[in-house]
């Protein structure tokens, strides 16, 4: 089920409902851990943005045709060298390679399709499992 390249060792696992307060609280909690490991403001900006996009994608697209009360799973592990976050939904998955490039001139006026590219732009690594319903984000400390 979980492909090896999207696994996180010794991760904290959280079952997350589609509730803005709970989503916000979890992200704040992860960022507090990151602050504790001396990640700076620009790193925290990048991490918040990428987690928001991953969670939004899981609920908006992953669970698009499913019961809206279904939760997703978020896993995270923070160390002084990197922060790893995995977001897994219960949907059928998708193929990130099939997404159109939102920066092409003909796509600039389209209102959607920028979440995955932003995650890739801000994170050190972004990996999907084979099914495409789990994404792992890894952000390496810039001080390394």
């Amino acid at each position: 089920m979980t492909d090896q390249h999207t696994q996180i060792l010794n991760a904290t696992k959280v079952i997350l409902e589609r509730n803005r307060d709970k989503i916000g609280a979890l992200i704040d909690q992860i960022l507090e851990h990151a602050k504790g490991q001396s990640f700076g403001d620009s790193s925290l900006f990048a991490i918040r943005l990428a987690i928001e996009e991953a969670i939004t994608n899981a609920f908006e697209h992953g669970h698009e045709h499913l019961d809206p009360s279904l939760p997703i799973q978020v896993e995270y592990a923070v160390s002084e060298t990197d922060i790893q976050i995995a977001v897994q939904d219960q949907g059928p998955g998708f193929s990130p390679a099939d997404l159109p490039d939102p920066t092409l001139q003909e796509n600039l006026s389209k209102p959607s399709g920028r979440g995955v590219m932003l995650m890739k732009a801000y994170m050190t690594d972004v990996a999907y499992n084979e099914k495409g319903n789990r994404v792992k984000l890894r952000f390496e400390s810039p001080s390394l």
Partner: peptide, 13 residues
Amino acid sequence: DHLSSAALGALIT
């Protein structure tokens, strides 16, 4: 301080 791709989408619309 922060905005998401969904906010960018709203701005485009």
